[in-house]
Structure formats: structure tokens, C-alpha cells
Amino acid sequence: MLTRRIIPCLDVTGGRVVKGQSFLNLRDAGDPVALAKFYYEQGADELAFLDITATVESRKTMASIIAELSKYVFMPLTVGGGIRTIADMREMLLSGADKVAINTAAVARPELITEGAIKFGSQCIVVAIDAKRSGEGKWVVRTHSATQASNLDAVEWAKKAAEMGAGELLVTSIDSDGHQKGYDNDLNRAISESVSIPLIASGGAGTPDHLYDALTVGKADAVLAASIFHYGTYSISQVKEFLARKGVAIRR
């Protein structure tokens, strides 16, 4: 049976893992290679790396981090942040990434999704959506690390991204991110029920119950979390044991 995935997320800047709140107030959380090895040994199902600086230089740093850690870590790796072209995607895939996440560049030019899917296969192309609640059952897409508003409705954009060839959606609630009070499951469910590709829920994990809710109420196929793992609040195995006990299909 296909299991639900638990994905620790490493936000990287200047070669270090950091974590913030609502995309601000960054705190240092460690060395990405050491953390990746640690999560691999703990039984994480996948790892996500987001280059939050998103410059040409930081992308090169990220590529070398991925190349180094993929010598020891034999699990799926998704890399995002500042990926704008097919050449950027290829650089990450050749470094050892399995999937690339695109966000701002996909909003600016949705054809990039299709071009990436034709070149590398849909399964390689993750469209990351940063969504901010704008009213009851309404979310608007923001870009450039959530600093700029777009005129896109998050659910409509998710549908379009899937049609254009995205293999997966990584949906982050800007309102919930870093607050550890739970995912925005209205948002997750609204998108998950509108598309036929997998959805990774992100933003707001504080307890194992929050992950359970995202996978059940939010209908997410995978959950991404940062703070609860980086600061040792919960281990991957604790979370997996909890979810398995509650009847969620989990790899152990």
C-alpha cells in the first residue's frame, strides 16, 4: 500500500539550515548535510531543501550541498528556491536532486511547468504554492518568498499547474507557517479535492496531531515539517508511530 510521506524541510541560506515564522525572523538550525544524514537514519520518507536566498550564488551552494549529501543519503530529495529555467532544473537534478520545486518562476511563466515536464517528466516538477487567506474559503497566491501578492486564486492556480504538467503540489499556508498551531486544512482540502496529483501540506506543524489532521481532514498525501524536527521536539519515529497507531498508512 502506498504510504503517506513525512518530509522534513530544510530551509537553507548561506549553506546553513534556518527556520523562521511567516517567512521572517530566521533562526539557525544546523548543517544541512548533517541534518539530512540524521533524518535519513531516522526513517524520514523524503527531504525537501528550499534555498531561501534564491540567488545564482546560493543556487550553486545548494547544488554542492545536494551533491555532497547524496553520497550518504539514499532517499528522495526535492530542491526549490530560485529555480527559473530548464538549465537550473538540470543543474539540481545532476547534483542528485530527484524533484525540483518551482514557485515564482511558474507564476510568471506557467509554460515553464510544461517545458520541465516534457524534458524531465511530470514526476520531477513540483509546483510550490504560497497561499494567504483572503476571506472565507479564499486564498491568494503570493510570490518572491511571499513578499509579493499575485492576482491568482490558490485553488484555480493549483488546477492550472496540474493541467500544465506539474507532478505534485507543495502548498504552504503563509498564515500558518512557523506558528506551530496546525496546517491550514481548509486550504489543503480545497486544493487536494480539485486536482488528481499528490499534495504536500506545509506550514504550521507543531504536534503529531497536526500532521494527522493534514493527512485526514486536509486530505494531503504527504506532510512537510521543519521546526518540530529540527529542534528535536519530536523525532521522525515518534511521529510515525503516532500516525500508524491512528491507522494512517506509514512506512516504518
Binding site: 502506498l2 510521506r5 511530470s122 514526476q123 505534485e168 488528481s196 496529483i197 499528490p198 498525501d221
Partner: peptide, 13 residues
């Protein structure tokens, strides 16, 4: 087939 999410992504037996 339709009825499951495609791509099939993740750990399976």
C-alpha cells in the same frame, strides 16, 4: 488508471 493520484509518488510494497 484513473481513480488514484497520478504520478504514483512515494514508498510502496
Amino acid at each position: 488508471p484513473a481513480g488514484v493520484k497520478v504520478p504514483h509518488i512515494g514508498w510502496n510494497n
